[in-house]
């Protein structure tokens, strides 16, 4: 089996903002590996505006695109995002957030997996200089794949509707290792 690391950057927001003006509170994400090897990341990112006087921020939402992850075939952003600009490998977001308030935006994108492992980088949380208060990940993998390694012990897991479900709940997450899962195709 090939072991290749696929980078799935879901929230490597660029924080060249003044430190702590914006806090990254939590994320609730679903990763789904479909039978056609496309991979969809979707979910909510919760931010907090720590300033008393401004209501928007600029963020970059980069898509991993390398020898392991193919071109993004679909993306969507919903929530208080005033302006979205599509770029070659990222989205530029103008994110609206009332002063002192905590809100979320929802994002999804789909890519073709070019290899048979995946790594979700969560060590970038350290760039925010603060742990995620809560992180919940649901990994859904089509039954045509066998999951051979997971980064954490799932809190729950089950099979239904021809899919495998793995649920992870983490609090105060400031990991030193990234979230890696590996899979292989099961010949029918």
């Amino acid at each position: 089996m090939k072991y290749v690391f696929t980078i799935i950057l879901s929230i490597l927001f660029v924080m060249n903002l003044h430190a702590q003006r914006l806090s990254f509170i939590s994320e609730f994400l679903t990763f789904e590996l479909h039978a056609d090897s496309t991979f969809t990341t979707s979910g909510n990112y919760i931010m907090k505006n720590n300033t008393p006087d401004r209501d928007y921020f600029l963020l970059s939402y980069p898509f991993p695109q390398d020898e392991y992850m193919g071109e993004v075939t679909h993306w969507d952003i919903k929530g208080n995002v005033e302006n979205v600009r599509e770029r070659k490998t990222s989205l530029g977001l103008r994110f609206k957030l009332a002063p002192g308030m905590q809100e979320s935006f929802w994002a999804t994108y789909t890519q073709k997996c070019l290899a048979d492992s995946a790594k979700y980088i969560i060590t970038t949380t350290q760039a925010w200089k603060k742990p995620l208060e809560i992180a919940e990940y649901t990994l859904i993998v089509d039954e045509c794949f066998k999951v051979s390694a997971l980064p954490f012990e799932p809190d729950r897991q089950w099979k239904a509707d021809g899919k495998q479900y793995f649920f992870f709940h983490k609090e105060n997450l400031m990991p030193e290792k990234d979230f890696v899962f590996r899979y292989e195709y099961i010949e029918p």
Partner: peptide, 8 residues
């Protein structure tokens, strides 16, 4: 219409 939470 923005999804703000999802559970399975």
């Amino acid at each position: 219409g923005v999804p703000v939470a999802t559970n399975y």
